[in-house]
Design a protein around this nucleic acid. Structure first.
Length: 235
DNA sequence: AAACGGCACAACCGCAGAATG
DNA sequence: ACATTCTGCGGTTGTGCCGTT
């Protein structure tokens, strides 16, 4: 049997120092990614493997694109979120240089509010109220959005859900047979897996991508995409 | 200038599925 | 086949920064 992943009593927590970053970078440059369990000791870091992995993936990787999200990136996130729900790693996989954590943070701090201000429920990408109220809501929300603190969010985050539940939540807007009240636009937006899965960061991720397509809805590669209200608005 | 509130982001936690002995 | 461990993911929290009062 294996040893536990990390000995929690002997590990640092909190913000990483420059020295720690440098140790991690140096080690991964030499030995490559992987084997996160043994990495901290080998690299001389008092961190658990999980923490090292996160630091590398979210902050130190050389291919990371830092800085503000471009408008087309925003649109893509919104569209992918309508399709995939809170599957941030999959969404991030379609945005080169962006991490799941970054996308998740950006969604929670910017995009959710943006959709809410447009009268769209960010959880299911539907218009959350009738249009006459929409305008009223635009003005109300633009002020209330700044007054509501993080923990008093008017629209609480999604409950933890796994796999099919999560997909069906966001996907419900795609499968729904109730008319949304908007014209039935065919935007011909088809999302497909890149032929070489080049955007998947690892073999593991590639496997998952294809697994997801095999046993989960929606089937991205072939499914004809039926636009949700959000997608209509952002076209 | 100080206090306060909101925001953005890095990091942690817990869970689930995969991998391994 | 089962138990244990590892890895990756998504939700949540902590904290520093910045604008406003």
């Amino acid at each position: 049997m294996r040893k536990p992943c990390c000995d929690k009593q002997d590990t640092n927590k909190g913000a990483w120092s420059k020295q720690e970053d440098q140790k991690l970078i140096d080690y991964i440059r030499k030995h490559g990614e992987g084997c996160w369990r043994t990495l901290p000791q080998a690299a001389g870091l008092l961190r658990c493997g999980k923490s090292c992995r996160l630091r590398w993936i979210n902050y130190l990787r050389p291919d990371l694109k830092r800085g503000n999200f471009a408008e087309d990136e925003e649109d893509l996130i919104i569209k992918l979120h309508a399709l995939l729900g809170n599957r941030w790693s999959l969404i991030a996989g379609r945005l080169p240089g962006r991490t799941d954590n970054e996308v998740k943070n950006y969604w929670n701090s910017h995009l959710r509010r943006k959709l809410m201000n447009m009268g769209i429920d960010p959880n299911n990408h539907r218009l959350s109220q009738s249009l006459p109220r929409l305008q009223q809501n635009l003005t109300l929300n633009s002020s209330s959005a700044t007054s509501s603190g993080r923990k008093t969010n008017a629209n609480p985050p999604m409950k933890p859900r796994r796999d099919n539940d999560q997909v069906s939540d966001a996907g419900s807007c795609l499968e729904d047979d109730e008319p949304s009240g908007l014209p039935d636009l065919n935007l011909d937006l088809t999302i497909s897996i890149p032929s070489d899965s080049s955007l998947a960061k690892t073999e593991e991720e590639k496997k998952k991508l294809f697994k997801n397509n095999n046993d989960r809805q929606p089937k991205l590669s072939e499914q004809e995409f039926v636009p949700s209200p959000t997608l209509c608005l952002f076209q």
